[in-house]
Design a protein around this nucleic acid. Structure first.
Lengths: 156, 156
DNA sequence: TTCATCATTTAGATTCATTCTAAATTGATA
DNA sequence: TATCAATTTAGAATGAATCTAAATGATGAA
């Protein structure tokens, strides 16, 4: 209950801070994203928000995600080869993807990633993708969905 | 000249090792990938190989890439949000992408990436994506193509 | 060498995520 | 309350990647 209200208050604050209009669709998307650690895709967000908000367009979800991303309020993750995943937590952190079910989890650890030779690039950021099998998947030995050819995958 | 021959020899060896038939299309794709550090996309590979090998199908490129990837001879990179990129160097290493021109370069440095809390996952691999601006792009201050909302991007 | 088999190639259709378009709507401000 | 620009919308369009089913061709056995 309180969470709902808090999320809506935050949603308003974010819109004001970014100079975005307070539309009900935006509020709903922002409220859904607030504190969300599931790294949802655009479809996930559309599915969840449009349930409570029938008639809204998927394009609105993409529009909103794009403006939040452009203004630095949302991270667009490329860790899942099938689709983009979104993370409202914009603090530096890393991710862990399950090669079986594609669940994405946060790794909140700071690593020392000084690059000895940056090849003349001006490096502005980094992100570590860890691959593996989540607690739910690591025991059921199903055929991996996106296992081979990724990162530095070792044999299990 | 010699390179051509070497690449073809290697291509044959790889096919034999993997139990794949030695088709001219496969040879050409493998020869193109051998020692290639440009991290080409499927389209890139198709464009290059079909120039010397007219009439070949893009589907063949995808088929070949999939079998090489499945057999561990090719890394499929998700670092470029626009398309998958391929790397014939399957040794553990990391990558650096230019946020302006999408060029991908190798980072051949070993980092200590021990995770204190793996959240119950069985971690099998990792990959670091570095973001930045390549030597060619870092001076021309064009509007970034895929800059915001990625990794831990700092202000320039 | 010839043949049969089965992997591979192929063109084209299909899928699916994402972006674009242009018209209708609506929030913010005067 | 009227205005205007931002936003939403449905649907079309794009583009990467996958799938299909038929044709082709590499390979191993005879």
């Amino acid at each position: 209950m309180m969470k709902q209200t808090q999320a809506k208050t935050k949603a308003k604050d974010i819109c004001k801070e970014l100079g975005l209009k307070l539309t009900p669709q935006r509020m709903a998307i922002l409220a859904y994203l607030d504190g969300n650690t599931a790294h949802p895709s655009a479809e996930d967000i559309y599915g969840a928000v449009s349930r409570r908000f029938p008639g809204m367009s998927l394009a609105t979800v993409y529009n909103t995600l794009a403006s939040l991303r452009d203004k630095g309020k949302l991270l667009e993750l490329t860790i899942d080869p099938a689709k983009k995943r979104y993370d409202p937590d914009t603090r530096p952190h890393h991710h862990l993807i399950c090669l079986d079910c594609s669940r994405v989890s946060d790794i909140d650890h700071v690593f020392d990633l000084d690059v000895p030779d940056s090849l003349g690039y001006e490096i502005t950021g980094n992100h570590i993708e860890f691959y593996g099998y989540c607690p739910q998947c690591k025991d059921k030995d199903t055929a991996p969905r996106l296992a081979p050819g990724r990162g530095h995958t070792k044999e299990r």
